[in-house]
């Protein structure tokens, strides 16, 4: 069982869910992004999701687009992710997944990328534009390197697709709460609950919900039916507007809602 899986199970036994926190590497600078990730880990976030900035992020809304573009303008290089992972792992025990669009992995070489991930202590990858149908190489190589594979499931996915996504994912299944891109929403789609129900029917053991989650109430709501709540844009936004202090406060507020719940 992978580190992410054990953690989710452990939290479940303790009667609570997980808070998964996303930040892109290199925003606002490489060092500050590493510091920000460590802050999240020390402020109640259970699983870290580190994003690789990419030139064409079709699943991302304006907040994350702005941050990743700034990272790229600041000279971000893919290999910096591995340095960042090592530093973060030295400072915290929180399991860490890397979120990346597929082309950077392809150009690095899938095998080389997997080897570097393993060496730097990461748990695996979340792949927003790689569906299991196109992931033959990644499925083989991630198994060989004992890495997690988090595929996305959408409210529109058919039963057959949910089965295939569940079968091919390891770590957890990323349930997309709504048909759309990343970014805060005032109301969470009821589609999220229905999707998680359908994933359970497809025998998904661990399911985290992402997209649009930004408030303690939303986290608490999602954790009534899912194993984890994934927060991205809300953290990036706090970091962008209020720096590390605002990020810490946001993480504490969101993780506090889990303990109270």
């Amino acid at each position: 069982m992978s580190e992410v899986q054990s953690l989710i199970d452990e939290r479940r036994r303790a009667g609570r869910g997980c808070l998964v926190g996303y930040l892109p590497i290199g925003f606002p600078s490489l060092d500050e992004s590493i510091g920000a990730a460590i802050t999240l880990a020390n402020s109640g976030v259970d699983i870290l999701e580190l994003g690789i900035p990419y030139s064409d992020p079709v699943m991302d809304g304006p907040v994350i687009q702005r941050a990743t573009q700034r990272s790229l303008e600041g000279g971000f290089r893919v290999r910096q992710v591995f340095e960042a992972l090592e530093t973060i792992r030295n400072e915290s025990a929180v399991p860490t997944l890397v979120m990346t669009y597929w082309n950077p992995v392809l150009q690095f070489g899938v095998r080389n990328f997997a080897a570097e991930l393993k060496k730097s202590g990461a748990s695996g990858l979340i792949t927003p534009d790689l569906i299991p149908d196109e992931a033959k190489d990644w499925i083989e190589i991630s198994s060989e390197f004992d890495l997690d594979r988090v595929f996305l499931a959408a409210p529109s996915s058919s039963k057959e697709r949910l089965d295939a996504i569940t079968r091919n994912s390891r770590g957890f299944v990323y349930a997309v709460s709504t048909m759309g891109t990343t970014g805060s929403r005032s109301e969470l789609d009821s589609a999220a609950r229905a999707l998680v129900g359908r994933l359970r029917e497809a025998n998904a053991e661990r399911i985290c919900v992402g997209l649009g989650i930004s408030t303690p109430e939303q986290v608490a709501e999602v954790l009534k039916y899912a194993d984890g709540a994934i927060v991205g844009s809300a953290f990036v936004s706090s970091l962008e507007t209020g720096g590390i202090e605002a990020l810490r406060a946001k993480a504490q507020a969101l993780s506090g809602s889990i303990r109270l719940g």
Binding site: D129, L152, A153, A154, R161, M179
Partner: peptide, 13 residues
């Protein structure tokens, strides 16, 4: 191929 987010798969299917 079809390197797209899962949310688009039903539409392109």
């Amino acid at each position: 191929g079809r390197f797209v987010p899962e949310s688009l798969v039903e539409a392109i299917d």
